[in-house]
Design a protein around this nucleic acid. Structure first.
Length: 752
DNA sequence: GCGGCGGGCTTTTTT
DNA sequence: AGCCCGCCGC
């Protein structure tokens, strides 16, 4: 392949691809072929300039973006992708720390603590240093610490800048929290970045190696990087200085996560010899949609003005709809989606519903379920946040890194094995006295004569747990990851325990799903397998698993929708207090971010855009009347229509029969309000790509005395039935396992 | 030590 | 309206 590949690009894109020497800033509007430029640039470097893939580093915003870019690249420069370094800042840094961390005292078996683990650690920190979480909410402290870390502030540096009483508390918590992380051999998300920067600062020889390796560096979504990430970019590009950053200040929407769009402006200051390229031609949206978007963003002050234009047709007008309340809003969305899918012009998978807060998804889901229209929810209950998944991952983490006391605490009594809070507190105190980790304390209590002051019964329980994990650790050295998976489920009694839970079936399915994730790592050497498995579990995001082109309508937050596109987009909740969010009403710079968020949403649409609002909406319990969003006021009225677009198909059908024709994946009861399944069963057809079965057969009603059969528990007799919410709770006496309480909608009970 | 129940509190967006 | 926490009884 040669320079022919450049013919697929427009002149601006081509210049951006060809300018490979020195620092480059590419300002790329939405839909301007940004990903295309980055991909072609890499292909150009490899195929034309002759750079070895090994010398290229590309940073993406999500793992999904990296995966897709690799797929495209494989076509342009076959065989190159295995040697390119490509991924998110977090995953790239995790790799560097895994390899080089020893140099700054980070053990290679470190685990990555997520927000949940972090909060547990902070809670313990608060207890230990006597901070009242009611006075100083842990979430606030966590966010303050995270912010400090994102600005390269160690506790010492933070202390110098702190002025308020709250800051002082944060300093004390921050210091203690850091100690605890170290004791747990753990790092948090911010640490992945921060520690890598520190590593490079303290070990110039290590930095030099990476600097020399990465001859060409590219960073996507640069407007959403924070200070630490920018510092990392500067460090890595310090030698060759071939650094290309791609971004659009108008799409910066993560300032609350300490992203700083000023990085884009500072880049020009810090690299005075940079070249700048603007990508302004939009290939994605109709002219109408683009003009709506431009009108909305024009009100912002802090921006780098770019003139978006397109050769695309004006297309349909943007549709503004006012519903009475959020239920009606959702109903309109679903029916309209259904209508368009029936017309044959669009598939359900071509459509997306975008919203400001996750809470808005619930009503939408209910509506999709009610009308039997397939949908997929991105996030909601994130797969890795489900209890059974977290529990099992905790076993893996503890086996990998016994110093991880958060994981230890999570599972020490799950399933229950007679270790209560009192014993744990005593054991912790004993460990602390001797300056041992909890695991070391268990080890000591089991093997030496120096035992903590506990009842022999409690000691036996601890000993039992200790030996369980010890056995599993030994297993982990010899067995494959999947074999280890099985051993954990068996030996810990977790599988048995799950089977006694009321929603056992769904949980076991999730465990099975986790197993398929583990399967992908099974061929690696056993030590690596566990380590990579855990890393991937920690660093995936919900969008990473989204398959836009299959299944039903996508339900997604505006933030998650960044970088995606859909032929048809519905944005719901176009109201003051929702979008813009009420937390942003007072602060002009936050208001600018809300406007950018709205802009991002609008520019996801290729052909059709619906902007919906509700006259009345229940928020935090009570019903509120909100004004239409100020962003609607920025739209020229000749670009919009106030009613549904003219039907391109008969639109009379709303009934049950029709719905079945469009439903490909959901075979459920005809929609009737009174048969709606309970909230817990509102499982999406596909949750971020991880299928969750939702087509359970409707169980016949049982009455007391009926002989029944259960796939796991076997035969039994119904003792009682009781209606709860939209479901029935049934108590069954099984021949083998005795009394069990079951939910009718979940248990696969059959007569006989 | 365990599990059930009631009360108070909270809700932005996430690698 | 949901979730977590703490209290209570077994």
């Amino acid at each position: 392949m040669n320079t022919e590949l450049l013919n697929a690009l427009n002149p601006d894109q081509r210049k951006a691809v060809e300018s490979i020497d020195g620092p480059v800033l590419i300002v790329a509007g939405p839909g301007s072929g940004k990903t295309r430029v980055i991909t072609y640039r890499i292909a150009y470097l490899i195929n034309v300039v002759g750079i070895r893939p090994y010398h290229i580093l590309a940073v993406t915003f999500t793992n999904k973006a990296a995966r897709e870019m690799k797929e495209r690249l494989e076509k342009l420069a076959p065989g190159s992708i295995k040697d390119i370094t490509m991924g998110t800042f977090h995953s790239i840094c995790a790799g560097i720390l895994r390899r080089e961390g020893e140099a700054i005292g980070i053990n290679r078996d470190f685990v990555i603590f997520d927000a949940d683990d972090q909060e547990k650690l902070l809670k313990r920190a608060a207890e230990e240093i006597g901070v009242d979480p009611k006075k100083f909410p842990l979430k606030k402290i966590a966010s303050a610490i995270s912010h400090a870390k994102s600005q390269l502030q160690t506790p010492e540096r933070f202390r110098d800048k702190s002025h308020s009483y709250f800051d002082e508390i944060v300093v004390r918590m921050y210091e203690h929290y850091e100690k605890m992380l170290r004791a747990n051999n753990a790092v948090d998300f911010d640490d992945l970045l921060l520690k890598t920067v520190f590593l490079f600062q303290r070990q110039p020889s290590v930095l030099k190696r990476y600097q020399e390796r990465y001859v060409h560096i590219m960073v996507d979504e640069f407007q959403d990087t924070n200070l630490v990430q920018y510092e990392l970019v500067k460090q890595l590009s310090g030698h060759h200085r071939n650094i290309a950053v791609v971004g659009d200040p108008d799409q910066s929407i993560y300032s609350w996560r300490a992203a700083d769009l000023r990085n884009v402006f500072n880049f020009e200051r810090d690299f005075p010899d940079r070249s700048v390229h603007y990508l302004e031609q939009n290939y994605r949206s109709t002219d109408t949609i683009l003009q709506v978007a431009s009108g909305i963003i024009a009100d912002n002050r802090e921006r780098k003005e770019i003139k978006l234009w397109t050769q695309n047709e004006p297309g349909d007008k943007v549709c503004l709809i006012e519903a009475y309340n959020e239920q009606e809003e959702a109903q309109i969305v679903v029916r309209e989606a259904e209508r368009m899918s029936a017309s044959g012009k669009y598939r359900l998978a071509d459509m997306a519903v975008l919203y400001r807060t996750n809470a808005q998804s619930r009503v939408l889901e209910e509506s999709f379920i009610h009308y039997g229209v397939p949908y997929k929810l991105v996030a909601g209950t994130r797969f890795y946040e489900r209890r059974e998944v977290k529990d099992l991952v905790a076993y893996f983490r503890l086996i990998h890194n016994p110093a991880d006391s958060v994981s230890l605490m999570r599972i020490i009594n799950v399933p229950t094995r007679g270790i209560g809070d009192k014993s744990i507190v005593d054991m912790q105190a004993w460990a602390r006295q001797r300056d041992l980790t909890l695991w070391q304390a268990l080890e000591a209590a089991s093997s030496s004569d120096d035992k903590p002051p506990l009842t022999s019964r409690a000691l036996a329980a601890f000993d039992h747990f200790y030996r369980l994990i010890q056995t599993l650790i030994e297993d982990s050295r010899q067995l494959s990851l999947l074999q280890l998976f099985g051993e954990i489920l068996e030996r810990s009694g977790y599988q048995l325990y799950l089977k006694t839970q009321p929603d056992a079936e769904e949980r076991l399915e999730n465990i099975a799903e986790l197993r398929t994730v583990a399967e992908q790592f099974n061929n690696l050497p056993s030590g690596d397998a566990l380590s990579f498995f855990l890393e991937s579990v920690s660093l995936v995001s919900d969008v990473d698993n989204l398959k836009e082109n299959e299944g039903g309508v996508t339900l997604i937050t505006l933030h998650q929708a960044k970088g995606l596109e859909f032929p048809v987009v519905f944005i719901v909740g176009m109201e003051e207090s929702v979008l813009p969010h009420f937390r942003s009403l007072e602060d002009p710079s936050q208001m600018e971010e809300e406007r950018r968020l709205c802009y991002v949403g609008v520019t996801r649409a290729r052909q059709r855009l619906y902007l919906l609002r509700a006259f009345r909406r229940s928020m935090m319990g009570s019903s509120k009347v909100n004004e239409p969003s100020r962003f609607l006021g920025a739209i020229r009225s000749d670009l919009t229509t106030g009613s549904l677009p003219k039907a391109d198909a008969p639109k009379t059908q709303t009934g049950v029969k029709k719905i079945y024709e469009y439903s490909t994946r959901q075979a459920q009861t005809p929609p009737r309000m009174e048969t709606r399944r309970p909230a817990t069963s509102m499982a999406p057809v596909v949750s971020a790509g991880r299928p969750v079965k939702s087509d359970r057969p409707v169980a016949p009603l049982f009455k007391t005395g009926d002989q029944v059969s259960h796939p796991i528990f076997g035969d039994g007799v119904v003792i009682s039935t009781m209606p709860v919410k939209n479901d029935h709770e049934i108590v069954v006496s099984f021949k083998t396992v005795g009394l069990k309480k079951l939910l009718l909608s979940f248990a696969k009970l059959t007569k006989g």
